[in-house]
Design a protein around this nucleic acid. Structure first.
Length: 890
RNA sequence: GGGCGAUUGGCUCAGCUGGUUAGAGCGCACGGUUCACAUCCGUGAGGUCACUGGUUCGAAUCCAGUAUCGCCCACCA
């Protein structure tokens, strides 16, 4: 039984279920086994959301933008792939799981590595499907048959092979260094995960007594150092001053005595010391400060670690051993004060690093770590963007990218965590390192040949972003030359938040170029942050998070998608306000009702079309052609906001406000033949179908549902294609400039008449007689053709063209437009208000004329401006002059 | 300390390579119960495009500087 009508009310809850299943059943999201001949490629590898969480609006924005592009290219007939996946988020996942198991009184330690990882895999299985379902609710047209996970075997192999190649190329190394350490997560973190924040601390000035010749402290002689971290005094191995500092020149080469421990500290000179800061003398704690570490290396100073991995003072700290670092700070200060060696203390603004994941204060920690020397990789990645092989949208992020690439440091890739890819390095008892890309490990030590059973594997795992950096090709089968890799790599667009430009995009560029010798994508499209209505970042702690699913439940996925991209420029943060969401909902409703009108207006018996297309028919076809050309251009240029605004404008203004209203006239005219009605209705249905095609990328659910109904009612309109998602993107039809001009003139007259009525407070329902003096013969003909439409649109009846009627019967309200001079209203007498209105209209036109004459009298303009600009201004002037004559004539 | 960006009607924002009278959504005012839609229709008010100078026939748009705000990066204890 054919559905002839759509439900009276648009209800997303009623239409959205089922649509996605229809798409899946059609196989539309999975590329055909063979690419269509001659097809262009369009590939997006989805930025993998973390398994740990539910989707937020940022993900919804990502999915919407990518889905729009993918659906567009699919309709274009391109060889299109959008590949989904999730990221294992090692540190984030452990953070979440630790909390979960803590609720049951368990911990990492109580479970042990193996059982902990078992729990993790179970946790993954539970949450992974949640993300998939959310993407389905959003309408994301992902190829689920290719869904990947950064911890699956393909990814694991890619990680091993990539790392082995880096090792073989001498770009991976293991060595001692000071790294950022999170004492709560108990792992190294990268520079990027160490977020700096300004805080108010204290700057203490502490006296270090000078050593006498017998090595005992001189009670009357000291050097004062300034520090914000007194607890690290216990790890000091020197005191440094600036070489040119006269105050301390004599002290260089002598020794100071470390409080509490009595260690002798050489007083050294190093240019890194700022003379103007504090006392100009600084304590050197190589194992707990990055600056000091560098100084120590220059001067070959010992490095003493005084904190353990949880940031408690260790045995090196003497009497303070066992104290937490902050307790120890207080204790040290108290003791110094008691000893009379605390010279001063004052509040001090300082910048403190915090763990991105848990916000704990990061501790520099001396340890042996795996690093990647990224400088050579960065140089290539930078060149790719500089030379335009990969471009970033918006373009100004290319500068940000360049700045980061130019100042890059080696990447500490090792993590002392369990959930992740274990670094494929094996150690032999002699200290040799063997890196292998074989899952089972090497058969023997690469250097001394010791058998595998004498080798032990590294326990550290990789930074999550290492596997993420391989994502564009590890998902396609790399390192094997799989058919997918050959067919879909390099990919097309990488769409993601600008927040992870460095974390992820930069790493993909570097590793992509290193592993595959080609840029992994030609375009990086960065979107901004979705903020709350007050501009605040959404966060669970603030409680201002909007759940996309809840939003979809309320207003529908289409409305949410529309709201997310409408008026949103790339790289710019947007506030998601209720008004914005309501805009999406309203537009959904508008589309639904436009479709209801068309479906409900179908004549019972649809006969053969007869007669010539009417003005609105010819006009809407031309407008659709224009809208199609514009949408195509904008989507090709990744101007999504422009695309959405354009189709919105077409649907609401052109189609609903003008075409539908005028088509009603043709459909309801009593003297219309069934064949003429059929013709008009077919135009309405055809152009509705065209509009649905244009809207499908952004509002897939409504358009699909309307399409289905339209298809049942009139398969000709859908050209026999029952499923919009696989329908063709519309071909660019022909514009009809003459018809568009004629229509524009009619619209101008209608608007002008409506304005007159409102300003003169004519009751909205009143019918007024209209008299028009056409400006010329063409206008007369146009007016004759348009009379039928003019009546209901401007609520005027009867309509008389000057010459046919008595001039004394003209109305008292007058307006002059391109088509001519028009009068409406009772009687011919001018009221004061009407005279004032007409005067103001005259003033406006005269001012315009004056401005244009001034412009055209300017020799510089006429000579130097492009001819078409000058011609345009001339035409405008002529038009205004004609309008003035008409106004004065009336 | 370095870098990047923003400043457009009451609010939130578009304005591509300089070219009509600077747009949209929301809000506001006024008027609308006819058979697609009040999640709607019609009409309207509202902006010296932060400021100063420059380039140009012409600047919201390009250049320089100033102010305010925001973000990113950074090893002054």
């Amino acid at each position: 039984p054919a559905r002839r009508e759509l439900a009276a009310r648009y209800d997303p809850a009623a239409i959205e279920p089922g649509v996605y299943e229809r798409w899946l059943a059609s196989g539309a999201f999975t590329p055909a086994p063979e690419p269509p001949p001659g097809a262009e490629r369009f590939v997006i590898i989805q930025p993998p959301p973390n398994v740990t969480g539910a989707l937020h609006l940022g993900h919804a924005l990502t999915a919407t933008v990518e889905d729009i592009l993918v659906r567009y290219h699919r309709m274009r007939g391109d060889d299109t792939l959008w590949l989904p996946g999730v990221d294992h988020a090692s540190i984030g996942a452990q953070f979440v799981l630790d909390k979960l198991i803590a609720a049951k009184g368990e911990s990492r330690e109580s479970l042990g590595r193996e059982r902990y990882l078992e729990r993790m895999w179970r946790f993954m299985d539970e949450t992974r499907s949640v993300i998939g379902n959310q993407h389905r609710r959003l309408g994301a047209s992902l190829d689920w048959t290719r869904e990947r996970f950064t911890m699956d075997e393909g990814s694991a192999r890619a990680v091993r092979v990539a790392f082995k190649r880096l090792w073989d190329a001498g770009l991976a190394y293991r060595g001692q260094a000071l790294v950022n350490w999170c004492p709560r997560c108990r792992t190294t973190i990268s520079d990027l995960e160490n977020v700096h924040r300004e805080e108010t601390g204290t700057l203490w000035t502490v006296r270090y007594h000078l050593a006498r010749s017998d090595g005992t402290p001189d009670p009357d002689a000291w050097i004062s150092v300034a520090t914000t971290r007194p607890e690290t005094i216990l790890g000091d191995t020197a005191v440094a001053v600036h070489p040119d500092d006269d105050r301390y020149r004599d002290l260089v080469g002598r020794e100071a005595i470390l409080p509490f421990l009595g260690r002798r500290l050489p007083i050294i000179a190093d240019p890194a010391v700022e003379r103007d800061f504090g006392t100009g003398a600084v304590k050197i704690t190589p194992a707990h400060d990055f600056d000091d570490y560098d100084v120590a290396k220059r001067h070959a100073l010992p490095m003493i670690t005084v904190l353990d991995e949880e940031a408690r003072m260790n045995a090196e700290a003497g009497e303070f051993a066992g104290l937490d670092r902050f307790e120890a700070r207080d204790a040290v200060v108290d003791r110094l004060r008691a000893m009379g060696d605390l010279e001063a203390e004052r509040p001090h603004q300082l910048v403190v690093g915090h763990c991105d994941k848990c916000d704990t204060v990061v501790e520099p920690r001396l340890s042996v770590q795996w690093f990647i020397d990224v400088k050579p990789l960065a140089a290539r990645a930078l060149a790719s963007v500089r030379e335009g092989r990969t471009r970033i949208i918006p373009a100004h992020f290319e500068k940000v990218y360049a700045h980061w690439m130019e100042n890059i440091h080696d990447w500490a890739v090792g993590r002392q965590l369990w959930w992740g890819h274990r670094i494929p390095a094996w150690y032999c008892p002699d200290g040799h390192i063997t890196v292998s890309d074989v899952e089972a490990g090497p058969a023997a030590c690469a250097e001394c040949g010791r058998p595998a059973d004498q080798l032990t594997q590294e326990t550290d795992i990789f930074d999550t972003w290492f596997s993420s950096g391989l994502w564009p090709f590890s998902t396609l089968g790399w390192p094997d030359e799989t058919p997918d890799l050959q067919r879909f790599y390099p990919t097309s667009v990488m769409e993601t938040a600008y927040e992870i430009l460095f974390f992820w995009v930069a790493r993909m560029m570097m590793l992509g170029l290193f592993c595959t010798d080609v840029e992994p994508f030609h375009t990086v499209y960065l979107h901004g942050i979705v903020r709350d209505p007050y501009g605040q970042k959404m966060s669970k702690t603030k409680g201002n998070v909007v759940d996309p699913l809840e939003m979809i439940g309320e207003i529908g996925a289409d409305a949410l998608r529309f709201a997310l991209v409408f008026g949103n420029a790339p790289g710019v943060d947007q506030r998601l306000t209720p008004a914005r969401l309501a805009g999406g909902r309203n537009f959904s409703n508008k589309l639904w009702n436009a479709a209801r009108f068309v479906l409900g207006a179908r004549p019972e018996e649809l006969e053969e079309s007869t007669g010539q297309p009417s003005l609105p028919e010819r006009w809407i076809r031309s407008r659709l052609a224009e809208a199609t050309a514009r949408a195509t251009r904008q989507l090709d240029a990744l101007d999504l906001a422009g695309y959405v605004a354009g189709v919105y404008e077409f649907a609401w203004s052109d189609y609903c406000d003008w075409f539908v209203e005028m088509a009603k006239v043709d459909l309801r005219r009593p003297d219309a033949t069934p064949g003429e009605r059929a013709r008009v209705w077919r135009t309405a249905a055809d152009s509705l179908a065209g509009m649905l095609r244009l809207l499908q990328p952004v509002m897939p659910f409504i358009t699909e549902q309307v399409w289905a109904t339209l298809h049942e009612v009139e398969p000709d309109a859908t050209r026999g294609e029952p499923l919009l998602v696989v329908a063709d993107w519309p071909a660019e039809g022909a514009r009809d400039e003459a018809v568009e001009r004629e229509m524009a003139d009619l619209v101008e007259l209608v608007r002008s008449l409506r304005n007159l009525r409102t300003e003169a407070s004519v009751p909205a329902g009143a019918w007024l007689a209209l008299t028009v003096a056409p400006s010329d013969e063409t206008a007369r003909q146009a007016l004759t053709r348009a009379a039928n439409y003019l009546e209901p649109l401007a609520r005027v009846r009867p309509i008389e063209l000057e010459g046919d009627g008595d001039p004394t019967e003209r109305g008292r309200l007058m307006t002059a437009v391109r088509l001519g001079t028009a009068w409406i209203g009772e009687g011919a007498e001018d009221s004061g208000a009407e005279v004032a209105r007409r005067d103001s209209a005259l003033r406006e036109v005269r001012a315009g004329i004056e401005r244009l004459r001034g412009l055209l009298d300017n020799a510089g303009f006429v000579e130097r401006a492009p001819a078409e600009v000058v011609a345009r201004e001339r035409a405008r002037l002529a038009e205004l002059e004609a309008q003035l004559r008409r106004l004065e004539g009336g």
